[in-house]
């Protein structure tokens, strides 16, 4: 969606978004940093807010208060980041407990255990842990040598895998 809109963004819209970006980036960054605590995830939160803005550029430009619109978008991004981290925490909790407890509190099903062990061994687990600890997708993508988009898709597939096989 962002890609399609970006192709259709005209020169006037590009100038508008760049001007808005340069006037608001720092203020939104420090707001995000206050909320999330880490510079890298704070920066990514702002970048994501502007990415959303680009996908809704026509709505944004009609707004009577584009700065207010951006602040609201930023707050929603922050809220979703927190919820996302909490959701991945659930998966981490399951995996940590599984590896920590020898009496296998969570499952007696050998297939489920195999899935959990498989996940825990490889880079997917690393990704899951990094998300839950507040690392940005950019940081994780750099560590794994993949794009941000690929990073996000892998995380979503992993979440689904754990839910389907474990829960």
């Amino acid at each position: 969606m962002v890609g399609k809109d970006e192709k259709n963004v005209n020169v006037k819209e590009k100038i508008f978004i760049e001007k808005l970006y340069k006037s608001l980036f720092n203020k939104m960054y420090y707001y995000s940093l206050s909320a999330l605590g880490r510079p890298e995830i704070a920066e990514e939160a702002v970048q994501e807010a502007f990415r959303i803005a680009c996908s809704r550029i026509k709505v944004l430009m009609k707004s009577e208060n584009p700065e207010g619109w951006m602040v609201i978008t930023q707050k929603n991004v922050i809220r979703n980041i927190r919820r996302s981290q909490a959701a991945y925490n659930n998966a981490i909790i399951s995996l940590l407990a599984e590896s920590a407890k020898s009496d296998n509190v969570f499952t007696d099903d050998p297939e489920q255990r195999a899935v959990l062990h498989e996940i825990a061994k490889n880079e997917e687990f690393i990704m899951l842990k990094m998300i839950s600890e507040g690392y940005s997708y950019l940081e994780i993508s750099e560590k794994l040598g993949i794009s941000i988009e690929a990073c996000k898709k892998r995380a979503q597939r992993l979440q689904k895998k754990i839910q389907n096989n474990y829960f």
């Binding site: 962002v2 890609g3 970006e6 980036f25 994501e48 950019l138 941000i148 988009e149």
Partner: peptide, 22 residues
């Protein structure tokens, strides 16, 4: 930051936000 935005984030073609409501 603007350069980074254009290089790394703007062209993400996913239809969904990076951080989705869960």
């Amino acid at each position: 930051a603007w350069e980074k935005f254009n290089r790394l984030y703007l062209n993400i073609k996913s239809d969904t936000p990076l951080y989705e409501p869960t």
